[in-house]
Simulated scan of single mutants.
Amino acid sequence: MASLPHPPLALIADGFTSDARADRAVKAVQAGVRWVHLRDHEAKPKAFATAARLLAPRLRSAAADVTVTVNSRVDVAEALGLGAHVGRRGPSGREARERLGAKALLGYSAHEHAEAKGDRTQGVDYYFFSPVFPTTSKPDQPPAGVETLRAFCRVASPVPVLALGGITPERVSVCRGAGARGVAVLSGIMDVDTPRAAARAYLRALAEHA
Rank of each mutant, 00 (worst) to 15 (best):
K44T: 04
G32C: 14
D23S: 13
D23M: 09
G118D: 14
G81S: 02
R204H: 12
A13D: 07
V74F: 05
E98W: 03
S18I: 00
F128A: 00
A79E: 13
A144I: 07
I167K: 03
S157E: 13
F152D: 11
G179H: 13
C175N: 08
L206C: 08
G118N: 07
A79Y: 02
G165W: 07
D40Q: 03
T67D: 02
L9D: 02
V33Q: 01
A104I: 01
D19E: 15
G107C: 09
Q30V: 08
Y127L: 12
A116K: 06
V172C: 09
D23N: 10
Y126G: 04
T194G: 04
P139V: 10
L105N: 03
P195A: 06
T50E: 15
C175V: 10
E147K: 13
V26G: 03
R58M: 12
A77Y: 00
P142K: 14
S92E: 04
R200N: 08
N71T: 06
A178I: 13
V76T: 13
H111P: 05
N71Y: 12
A180G: 15
R88F: 08
G182K: 07
A114G: 15
V161I: 11
R196T: 08
P57V: 04
V68K: 01
P158F: 02
P158V: 02
F48M: 04
R94P: 00
R53F: 10
E112I: 03
L186V: 00
D19G: 05
G165E: 10
F128S: 01
F129K: 07
F16A: 00
Y202A: 07
L55Y: 09
L100N: 02
A156Q: 11
A198H: 09
P158D: 04
V132E: 11
G179N: 11
S173N: 13
V68G: 04
